[in-house]
């Protein structure tokens, strides 16, 4: 992951500042070194603004202030800058939360091969594993998780709250299953194995597992 890296990006009508990560100390440090190296370079350039995905409105405001008063950037702060930043922040969050229902449609990640102990896969969408998931491996998806093999590790479908998500596997013998905010564990002792694929879903607030019958 990129943490606290900044970049000035040029587009047709000017330059904007792109910020990755949320480590403010690091961002300020880099801002200092970058601007010290290229002092005067931005003079007369049309500065468009700052873009930072992971920053809070207050942190964005701080960056704006630093740019304007320490480095003489031509920025129109206005009285309502913080309000505007809040609006942008809010609409971004709303956009994120509006794609909760990934279990119906959405992006899918395909994984080929065996997932082994200690491996963790987290995805905003559905996960399909063409292979096995060994004990100690951990799958997390906002949508469904489908495994064309044996699931022995832990799978968490609909992890941002979608309880319509399902977990299905050719051989479903997980240590633990999670759908939305419900967690169930395998019973102690031996469990009878079906020779059928099984599907786990939430029914009446509980996770149930049923064999998958093709002629349904």
């Amino acid at each position: 992951m990129k943490n606290g890296t900044i970049a000035f990006k040029g587009v047709n009508d000017g330059v904007y500042l792109e910020i990755y990560g949320s480590d403010m100390d690091k961002i300020k440090e880099e801002l200092k070194t970058k601007l010290a190296k290229s002092s005067g370079f931005f003079q007369g350039v049309n500065f468009l603004g700052v873009s930072g995905e992971d920053l809070s409105p207050e942190e964005m405001l701080e960056i704006h202030l630093i740019l304007k008063y320490r480095y003489d950037f031509d920025i129109d702060l206005g009285d309502d800058l913080l309000d505007r930043l809040y609006m942008i922040y809010k609409s971004k969050r709303e956009l994120e939360s509006s794609v909760v229902k990934n279990s119906k449609e959405g992006m899918t990640k395909f994984l080929y091969g065996t997932l082994r102990s200690g491996q963790i896969v987290e995805y905003n969408g559905n996960i399909v594993v063409v292979g096995d998931v060994n004990p100690g491996a951990f799958l997390k998806a906002t949508g469904n998780i489908i495994i064309l093999g044996t699931l022995k590790g832990v799978a968490h479908a609909g992890f941002n709250g979608d309880n319509e998500a399902i977990v299905a596997a050719y051989n479903l013998i997980p240590n633990q299953l999670r759908i939305a905010d419900i967690i169930v564990r395998a019973p102690d002792g031996d469990i009878s194995e079906y020779k059928l694929p099984e599907v786990a879903r939430v029914y009446d607030g509980e996770i149930i597992i049923e064999p998958y019958l093709p002629n349904k």
Binding site: G118, G136, Q176, D188
Partner: peptide, 17 residues
């Protein structure tokens, strides 16, 4: 950490959250 075993030896693996 990273090579946990004790839970398996104790038969408690499925309870880990």
């Amino acid at each position: 950490i990273g090579l946990r075993n004790l839970d398996v030896v104790m038969g408690l693996e499925n309870r880990i959250v």
